[in-house]
Amino acid sequence: MGDNSQPVPVLVCADLRRTFGDRVAVDGVGFHIERGETYGLLGPNGAGKTTSISIIAGLLERDAGSVSVSGQPVTTTTVEAKRAVGLVPQELAIYPDLTAAENLMFFGKLYGIGSNALAQRVDEVLEIVGLIDRRDDRTDEYSGGMKRRLNIGIGLLHSPELLILDEPTVGVDPQSRNAILTSVERLGADGMAVLYTTHYMEEAERLCDRVGIIDEGRIVAEGTRRELVALVGERDRVELAASGDLAAAATALRGLAGVDDATPGDGSIQVVVESASARLAEMLAAAVAAGATVTGVDIYEPDLEAVFLHLTGKALRD
């Protein structure tokens, strides 16, 4: 008998691998998502996010690895286990010549929602994604943001245990984007497990309980925001707006305890320091003594962008 006190994670995937010709798109990706948890896959273009997600959703053959959703294995020939998954693909996948309601009714039937429940559920979803007013308009008359919202709505229809969203905010205006993020937050709070891919650091920080940082097909780090940031250490980045002898000031700053690095730039000095607030007075004094005039100070706490930079030596966005 299995151990019933331990709930089965909604998604477990392990050691996923996939190559296209010589190119290794996914190289040993694995993670798990618990009920009510929002997990982010954060990585730049071409990192392997869509490939991983396609394997997880049973839409792409894999070279190796395993996927199970609520304990049921998923492959490309799986049918029933897919009931537990709602996929929102990166590319729009809606019929342009049908209305929003018709699109939802159609996919609702494919998800196996009974006719009586379906009509009501379609309106609920249109309400959630804010398209109830445009219910009976053909989707080729929609704005980009509205199409994206409908694209998400289809994945929500059957209230899946696992909702997979692949970069749902790409090419969306700030207002729609905020609406999308808010509804994802709400779904997570309602207990849905969410797998969210993005290359926007802010989205991952805002939405995700845990984040996997993916690059070149590998998850290079995983954890809560706090855990990931700790990888960089308790370091802040301080930008001193200054004039005068910046090179001398930078050298002086580097001599201070707790300062990892100081780089003179054009009208400013970038300093990487352990707990900036505690050492700020000391730093200003040293800079002034070295012949610089400081006109402003900005302190940046470490973020996932910094983590990505630290781990891969690359910026998240090119």
Partner: peptide, 14 residues
């Protein structure tokens, strides 16, 4: 091309 075929296969439909 529209991606709807792929989406159909992501639902419990063979």
């Amino acid at each position: 091309k529209l991606g709807v075929s792929k989406r159909m296969l992501s639902t419990p439909t063979s």
